[in-house]
């Protein structure tokens, strides 16, 4: 097996290199496109590029208890601000902060919309603070209210009356991406203070731009991966059918049986797929980690996983194709080949 594999690497080094380059180009291009796409939209909101995690408390806690939680988190999770809020979506607007117990109204132009049970402890997006300084001003307690659309065209929420005394969800936000070890810390913090919560991690993009943009980006990258997969299949099938015929004849004259050919070609193909995938992922990872082209977060994890899954599926499909081709060549068309 090793002999054949070594032989195949040596024979097809050009093809392997070509595959790696194609993978790199496609993967890199889609990633760059993705990054550009996002940066184009959020270029004016750089200050607001937070990573956040949203915490849904299974059992609401009193406002008075919240400060304990907040203190604990501040002590144990440095670099993070914690805010508590309830998100209510009204008429396409996200109400992201309201005064605790107040009844808030969302104003879109002259029209005021009523928001139920909105609670606010602090304002957590500096850009909003800046934009609505006259209304929000302070980032601590007993304040205010603001609303935003996905594109920050602006909305103003006013405060009318107090309604609720409990906190049911909160946000931890930070100016740096929340890493895996941070997640462990956050989880531990809530466990330590005996607060039962579901924690969901949001990307800055999801938070700022909304789901629509996120999925659009996924579609773009998905498309890139599909193109890569099609290219890969195309190269493989044309190579196998058109160019390998003489090789198959020669191998068979030398005593290769179908098992040898399967091992040879399938092994070679699997190796190429694996190399391409590793290389593609590796290059993307280096771009992320060391070149600072974009930040590594959930937006990119999903395409990575998608890429791997699609590649494995393509690999399996192509292995079946190769197997069938070899069988056909040997059992039916062998004489024609000779």
């Amino acid at each position: 097996m090793w002999k054949l594999l070594k032989e195949s690497i040596r024979h097809y080094r050009k093809l392997i290199i070509a595959c790696i380059i194609v993978t790199m180009l496609v993967y890199g291009a889609t990633q760059v496109m993705l990054t550009y796409y996002y940066h184009d939209i959020i270029s004016n909101q750089d200050e607001a590029r937070y990573m956040q995690c949203e915490i849904f408390l299974k059992k609401p806690i009193a406002i008075s208890e919240l400060s304990d939680v907040e203190d604990y988190c501040i002590q144990n999770i440095p670099d993070y601000d914690m805010s508590a809020y309830v998100v209510n979506e009204v008429d396409g607007f996200n109400i992201i902060a309201v005064k605790p117990g107040d009844e808030a109204k969302l104003c879109k132009g002259a029209e005021a919309l009523k928001v139920d049970e909105a609670i606010v402890m602090s304002v957590f997006l500096p850009i909003l603070e800046e934009m609505y300084s006259g209304y929000i001003g302070i980032a601590t307690s007993n304040v205010v209210v603001c609303g935003c659309t996905p594109l920050f065209v602006g909305a103003i929420v006013s405060v009318e009356s107090v309604k609720s005394e409990a906190v049911s969800s909160m946000v931890i936000s930070c100016t740096k991406p929340i890493t895996y070890s941070d997640r462990v810390k956050i989880k531990k913090a809530f466990k330590d203070i005996n607060v039962d919560a579901d924690i969901s991690y949001m990307t800055e993009f999801k938070w700022l731009l909304g789901n629509v943009e996120y999925y659009k980006a996924s579609v773009i990258l998905g498309l890139g991966i599909v193109i890569f997969a099609l290219l890969s299949i195309g190269i493989l099938v044309s190579y196998m059918i058109q160019k390998q015929k003489k090789e198959i004849i020669v191998f068979m004259l030398c005593g290769a049986n179908i098992r040898h050919l399967r091992r040879f070609y399938i092994g070679e193909y699997m190796l190429m797929q694996l190399l391409s995938l590793l290389f593609g992922c590796g290059v993307a990872f280096i771009m992320v980690r060391f070149m600072g082209i974009f930040e590594f977060n959930d937006v990119y994890v999903l395409p990575f996983i998608l890429c791997i899954i699609i590649s494995i599926c393509c690999g399996l499909m192509e292995v079946i194709t190769i197997n069938r081709l070899l069988k056909k060549d040997i059992n039916v068309q062998w004489r024609k080949l000779v």
Binding site: I249, V250, M252, L253, C254, G255, A256, N257, I258, R259, H260, I330, N331
Partner: peptide, 20 residues
């Protein structure tokens, strides 16, 4: 097919016009 492959491998040597 496997048995025939063994014959081609061990019992017969091929020499072709286009060298193969």
């Amino acid at each position: 097919q496997q048995q025939k492959a063994v014959i081609r491998n061990k019992k017969i040597g091929f020499v072709l016009q286009d060298f193969g």
